[in-house]
Design a protein around this nucleic acid. Sequence first.
DNA 1: GTGGCTGTTTAAACCGGTTTAAAAGCTCAG
DNA 2: CTGAGCTTTTAAACCGGTTTAAACAGCCAC
Lengths: 342, 342
Amino acid sequence: MVKDRPTIADVAARAGVSKGSVSFALNGRPGLAQATVDRILAAADELGWRPSNRARSLSVSKAFALGLVITRDPAVLSSDPFFPAFIAGVESVLSRGGQALVLQVVSAGDDEAAGYRRLAQDGRVDGVFLSDLRHEDPRIGLLRELGLPAVTLNRPEGSSPFPAVCLDDRPGMVEVVEHLLALGHRRIAHVAGPPTFVHATARSDALVATLADAGLEPVGLEVSDFTAAGGIEATRRLLALPQRPTAIVYANDRMAIAGLGAAQRAGLTVPDDLSIAGFDDSELAEFVHPGLTTVRADPYAFGEAAANTLNQLIDGTGEVADVELPPARLVVRRSTARLEES
Amino acid sequence: MVKDRPTIADVAARAGVSKGSVSFALNGRPGLAQATVDRILAAADELGWRPSNRARSLSVSKAFALGLVITRDPAVLSSDPFFPAFIAGVESVLSRGGQALVLQVVSAGDDEAAGYRRLAQDGRVDGVFLSDLRHEDPRIGLLRELGLPAVTLNRPEGSSPFPAVCLDDRPGMVEVVEHLLALGHRRIAHVAGPPTFVHATARSDALVATLADAGLEPVGLEVSDFTAAGGIEATRRLLALPQRPTAIVYANDRMAIAGLGAAQRAGLTVPDDLSIAGFDDSELAEFVHPGLTTVRADPYAFGEAAANTLNQLIDGTGEVADVELPPARLVVRRSTARLEES
DNA sequence: GTGGCTGTTTAAACCGGTTTAAAAGCTCAG
DNA sequence: CTGAGCTTTTAAACCGGTTTAAACAGCCAC
């Protein structure tokens, strides 16, 4: 019923040559007469033959696929604006090249190492993306041990055997703080992400450093978890301070939008009573009321660059250079305003 | 340097048997003496042998992977609360079983059929999930033609050769409307999703039908696109009506939250001047101000059920029954309130 | 006519499993 | 002692490609 796919032997028979010649022709190996190559390619075309990935995988020991392990709570993951766009960028590279993306979602509680181990030992992928870098990230040692090529999203501290594709968050955070300072704010608070993550501390550190340059320090520094629920909690605590901050900078938009809700629920008007800034420029940032001042990066380009770099590494010709992408930039909207000292 | 993985031949040698016997032992085939099986398994264990996926793929013509093609604009996809949770549910099934999930993101503009064709012809996957069903969905015919097993998320209209895993949105929408009616609302408007999608029209139809049961019809019916930007636009038009609606029901949370922002920007107080309801119960729904009345489904369970059903279909033993999941249910928060006729 | 050289082509091994058909070993009846 | 009927085991083919080593063809020089 279902017509079997033609194999390389069918093509060889039709072109009147051996299997080996077909393979050579397809892979553009030298040593075949041009006329023969043409004949083979024509035969392949007529039969609609495409080499079997499985057979190729076995004989050349490659998976023709890249892997992404996302270690997050489904709930947390659920409204993360980064990954979908990042993945789309990766895909745009893989779909040329005929590669596939293997996704693995590991719940925060589960054994994350097992996820990478499975991808490696099953030979599912030729390399992986290492996202959400942590301090002293154990995955770097694990991947080296497994011999699985990888690319890190941003640079881990310490030495790493893997190339890094970097999109610096800090300039955006510096801009946020300078923007608030320029608006006259002096009592600025911060809701940070979990300090295990490199990007969370990078954002916090940039904020603190920029304030310090102005001779200030945060009037409140809440460590939260990037979730909306966490953002609400942190905001409540900040608003309960004896000296309320006049501006709160959040480490991501989800916490910021939730914080915006919390402030409004507490009877405050944003930005008149409180300025709020987020980070990510997620889709809703523009459309909540008031529109959220935030920081925009380009996760799609991040994905493209990471995929290209990982492929270079896998193809293994020479050293692979780190890639530096344009940094995240400030986007000013209505949630931040000049401080009216009442 | 990197020690080669042991192969089945190594195990056979160590156990003093042939490759075939090892294969039999591993797959629990009858016909081997128990003592031999034990010896083989012990040898495999000592060598830390795991059969190569690639070799198995080639010889049994299976990929041991399932595919999900997401046909959306990265921008639109970026804050969709459904897929991440759905994928996590799928993963929870696949990670037992040693299967992998191959993800493909196709931009709305691109050739979606090519995406499925690639997955099928490359033999990357043994089956796919068919999400975001459309009316007269061309993918059903395509997949049948490709001979690729599939499971549809919800039931397509017309006959389908594939089992369906269903999570009915309509009861939730009925509840929303009844909730609003009970609060005294009579001028109810709706912002629908693109009518090409089955789930979009299912929601709209349920709303219209429930209003009709009460002898009413929507005072405004805007067709939008599930994005925040679209939600804003639709809301503006509805609020500009000569007879403003007292309640707006949105086909998803993103449009609803954006609509909430638009209403507030227009100087309205929600829910005093306008009640608003969403659909999805996305993470932010609870935390915006006021908290969004919405409808909650369980995309994680949806993913689990879909993966199990697809695997049953692939293993091909007998007919596979459709699965009916608990329907989406109303979640009441502060964005809807009793109509105060002023 | 033979040897050497280059340019083409092929047969066969290989990747690491699964599967089939046949062989080997054993028990027991006749 | 033979052979039928089991159970257990194995050798070899197979999946569909890639790759290596060898064969082959054509040409020229000697």
